[in-house]
């Protein structure tokens, strides 16, 4: 957890110096082959919708298909916009972090960010987790 806080500090500091823009934060959830995982994320968004931040998720339910132990997964995530309009941004994403405080995991994916109003963004995502597609959703608020 100390590592995560340190990473969060670095992310905030570096991105603030590099491209100070708004911060978004909120709950995230992901349906994986190993069950549903929920948590939160905080990230910086640049003017061009590049995103860099930290996340934390843990098991909220188990899957019948996988006899998985309780999972805690945290780390850093980034999103690089591939296409965007004034309301929708489609991005490639990359997460890297620690699963159960021991296992280094990298997760490629993609997300669609919908700006529902000035402060609220809805995110739907797809990622590659445990060798299978995982679907995610997030509700992010501009701080």
């Amino acid at each position: 957890m100390k590592t995560l806080l340190l990473m969060a500090g670095c992310v905030v500091g570096i991105t603030h110096m590099a491209f100070s823009q708004h911060v978004v934060a909120g709950p995230v959830g992901e349906s994986t082959i190993a069950g549903v995982q929920v948590g939160a994320s905080v990230s910086y968004l640049s003017k061009r919708e590049f995103s860099l931040g930290v996340f934390f998720v843990k098991s909220a339910s188990r899957s019948d298909a996988w006899s998985t132990p309780h999972v805690v997964f945290y780390g850093v995530h980034t999103a690089v916009p591939l296409m965007r309009t004034s309301k929708i941004v489609f991005s490639g994403t990359f997460r890297a972090g620690l699963s159960n405080q021991q296992f280094v995991v990298v997760v490629p994916g993609a997300e669609t960010r919908l700006m529902t109003n000035r402060r609220v963004q809805l995110v739907s995502s797809v990622a590659w987790r445990y060798g299978h597609a995982a679907l995610g959703a997030a509700l992010l608020l501009k701080l």
Binding site: S31, A65, L122, S124, L135, A137
Partner: peptide, 19 residues
């Protein structure tokens, strides 16, 4: 705001794989 969020969550979390 809530409507697309609810639809999104239903789509995401309703999926279950057959072993």
């Amino acid at each position: 705001t809530l409507t697309p969020l609810l639809v999104l969550c239903a789509a995401v979390f309703a999926c279950e794989h057959e072993p």
